[in-house]
Amino acid sequence: MNVFRLAGDMSHLLAIIILLLKIWKTRSCAGISGRSQLLFALTYTARYLDLVTNWVSLYNTVMKVFFIATSYATIYLMYLKFKATYDSNHDTFRVEFLLLPVTILALVLNHEFSFMEILWTFSIYLEAVAILPQLFMVSKTGEAESITSHYLFALGSYRLLYIFNWIWRYYTEEYYDLIAIIAGVVQTVLYCDFFYLYFTKVLKGKKLQLPA
């Protein structure tokens, strides 16, 4: 464990808590993409099945349980409890265009052709693109609430911090995992224009407005 990975996990944790608070406090999931949340739940389910097979640490287990539990809780809130506030008209990104290539890539490009390893690889590739429906929805609605912007900033920062973690681990432990690194870079690059808008607008108190 290093400071970058811990900061990344905390940023990820913060993002999920911000999202849950936003939905719970405002009793609305307006502006949030349910499709992205479904992809995240699928990502963590596929990646954390090893919860039952191999023990890494208490921290690792607690965080995995938390990420799985909160991803399903978010889906429950969006598709059941506050279903009436779910903006399905703007949440229209074709997720099959993500799932198919990611599945094929996981079958072709992996460290080992085993069930668990392919699930892990699938989850790494899927996580890289899982935010696309959300970013697409923000571009379609042309704006996002500030709280949603903070959620996206924390979520985007998590994998950016992981990149620093991988650099750190490469130089200190000579450890690297190209699949995780390349997917993590792609994932972070997808946030770039959002990060730009976040720093130039949201942090100056303006609403996140995208040029429609």
């Binding site: 990975r5 990420f67 080992e112 450890y175 690297y176 190209l178």
Partner: peptide
């Protein structure tokens, strides 16, 4: 060494 298949990261 390249990553073993036991993934210790979240």
């Amino acid at each position: 060494p390249e990553a073993s298949n036991s993934h210790d990261e979240l």
